[in-house]
Design a protein around this nucleic acid. Structure first.
Length: 343
RNA sequence: UUGCUUAAGUGUGAUUGGC
């Protein structure tokens, strides 16, 4: 059931649940939490909340994990008031929030850019007898990074160390990304090379972050050099890594190299996903090759990668720019008939 | 009864040319 829920296949999960019942097996708290998570992942948070509510008095009790999962679901939708209300409710029902619960809420505030609330909660956890952990600090550090407040991010990194918490690779990745987004590649590379001194190893995300930083500055040679360095570190580029470079090549108007790289990654057994295709399609559109873009849109579908509204928008806009009104009308009809909602 | 094992929750990277 967890496997299906993680893949978003709620129908299959329901079938298994049904099969369980048929065999006289009872769902338990873990089953309940698993299904709540599955519903939330689909964006069906209200259904998840209803499910938790309905389980009252059914002998199937939600616990701290169940509540936290649902709280995280609300947070992911930016529904912070409801998340906080649920926090109160679980307390009222005798379930104590733990560090994971707070981390979910703190992340929710960070994603809304509400750093005051996030820091307040980080400091206020103690009053609930809870201690922030590496995830808590990383969450808030990332929040500062996303706002470009790098001084505060670094200050918090030092503070967590002072409090005896060790940053991990994810913490560094967040900070490195912050510097990259500010165009401060010197600092980013320094951290990439310096993290070993903290006993930490860069991973695929670290390299991809810095590679993307170089790509965004049009420094493709340095990006490719880093890509090659990965192997020496026992790391392999993944779909995201390749997409970052493909995007850089598109930006640099090197469409031939971008399409070559797309084919190369397939040969190396790394599957392009919808973002990768969108990147190349947008690249083609921008240089006025809407027909080639259209062909690639059809091809991705054949390869089992469904286009999304982003894909269609790129091609539609390019067709209009090129004065291909009929083709764009045709494509528009196609997307609506396939059930896509124009945005 | 005791022990072991397994299953659920939180943080980081890629596509978003108005010029």
């Amino acid at each position: 059931i967890n496997g299906f829920c993680n893949k978003g296949k709620m129908d299959d999960a329901a079938k298994l649940l049904e099969e369980m019942r048929g065999k006289g097996l009872h769902a338990n708290t873990v089953t309940l939490s698993t299904i709540i998570k599955g519903l939330c992942k689909q964006g069906w948070v209200d259904e998840a909340a209803k499910l938790l509510e309905e389980m009252r008095g059914s002998g199937l009790y939600p616990n701290t994990v169940s509540f936290t999962t649902l709280i995280n679901g609300f947070c992911k939708q930016g529904r912070m008031e409801e998340a906080v209300k649920l926090l109160e409710e679980m307390r009222g029902r005798g379930h104590y929030p733990d560090t994971v619960t707070f981390n979910a809420i703190i992340n929710g505030f960070c994603k809304q850019g509400k750093m005051v609330e996030a820091v307040e909660l980080l400091e206020g956890m103690r009053q609930s007898g809870l201690y922030p952990d590496t995830v808590t600090f990383t969450t808030v550090i990332n929040g500062f990074c996303k706002q470009g407040r790098m001084e505060e991010a670094v200050k918090l990194l030092e503070e967590m160390r002072g409090r005896g918490h060790y940053p991990d690779t994810v913490t560094f990745n967040a900070i490195i990304n912050g510097f990259c987004k500010q165009g401060k590649m010197v600092e980013a590379v320094e951290l990439l090379e310096g993290m070993r001194q903290s006993g930490l190893y860069p991973d695929t995300v670290t390299f991809t972050t810095v590679i993307n930083g170089f790509c965004k500055q049009g420094r493709m040679e340095e990006a490719v050099k880093l890509l090659e360095e990965m192997h020496g570190n026992g790391l392999y580029p993944d779909t995201v890594t390749f997409t970052a470079i493909v995007s850089g090549l598109c930006r640099a108007r090197e469409l031939d190299k971008a399409t070559d790289l797309l084919e190369k990654m397939v040969r190396e057994g790394i599957k392009p996903n919808v973002v990768t295709y969108n990147t190349v399609i947008l690249g083609l559109c921008v240089v006025g090759k809407s027909q080639e873009a259209r062909r690639l849109l059809d091809k991705m579908a054949v390869k089992g990668c469904a286009p999304d509204i982003f894909t269609y928008n790129s091609v539609l806009r390019a067709m209009h720019k090129e004065g291909r009104v009929e083709e764009s009308m045709e494509l528009f009809n196609e997307l609506t008939s396939k059930g896509y909602i124009p945005d």
